[in-house]
Simulated scan of single mutants.
Amino acid sequence: MSIEIVLRAARVRYGPLEALHGLDLPVPAGTVTVLLGRNGSGRTTALRALAGTVRLSTGRVLWRGADVTRLSAHERARRGLCFVPDRQAVYASLTVAENLALTTPGAPPPYPELVPLLERTAGTLSGGERRMLALSRALLAADARARARVVLVDEPSLGLAPPVAARTYDRLAALAVEGGAAVVLAEQRVPDGLPTGTLVHELRRGSLAFSGEPAELA
């Protein structure tokens, strides 16, 4: 199992508060990794640290052995990292089609539910529709042109109906199992139906409390 990207002794501060306390977090390629924890546990901050949308106060981010700690979020995106945050993940003033074209021009939306909405501006969509649009970035980024190597998604099922959520997890799992991407999901609980070999890291107050397989956590 090769490590794609890793946090080494990562600390992140928001003013006087420290959100990550020297976190070591290896993320293997071709694997689904779940960051588990309640609100305030540090799971979202860990994703942001990997993506480069927050800076480390100390520690490093290594991508295939190269130190990318000082690389900006857009530079990491150019290298093949796709980050889908839990909120403000779409461009509200652009249409659905324009949002999709930012990732892969001309590609059909991964969710059939979005096809009738292509000319609608993203700001007029429901919460679930906006979530499908945001997730489409990650799913389209794995095609032959974009070649996403690291896919980070904060709460994939937020606002989705259960059948749509199930399809989403199947597609995200395929990015890892079939596409070889390192897929990291921030969740409050372990989703059903994840593939064999899924890894779980439980965070509590910015520190690692458990690492292993889902069955061991149960």
Rank of each mutant, 00 (worst) to 15 (best):
M1I: 07
S2P: 00
E4N: 07
A9F: 01
A10W: 10
R11D: 14
R11Q: 14
Y14T: 10
Y14F: 15
G15L: 10
A19Q: 02
L25P: 00
V34F: 08
L36D: 08
L36E: 07
R43A: 09
T45M: 05
R48D: 00
G52N: 12
R60I: 05
W63D: 02
R64F: 04
A66D: 13
D67A: 10
L81F: 13
A89G: 01
Y91T: 12
L94Y: 04
T95A: 09
E98I: 10
N99I: 05
L100H: 04
L102Q: 08
G106F: 10
P109V: 12
P110M: 12
P112F: 13
E113R: 14
P116I: 14
P116Q: 12
L117I: 11
A122C: 08
G128Y: 02
M132A: 06
L133E: 04
L140S: 06
L140G: 08
L140C: 07
A141I: 03
V150G: 04
L152I: 11
L152F: 02
G159V: 13
L160N: 06
A165Y: 06
T168K: 01
Y169T: 04
L172E: 03
A173N: 00
A176T: 04
E178Y: 02
G179A: 12
E187Y: 07
E187F: 02
Q188I: 08
Q188D: 07
V190I: 15
P191L: 09
P191Q: 10
E202K: 12
E202L: 13
L203A: 09
R204W: 03
R204T: 15
R205G: 13
S207N: 01
S207M: 05
G212E: 11
G212Q: 12
A215N: 01
A215L: 12
A218I: 09
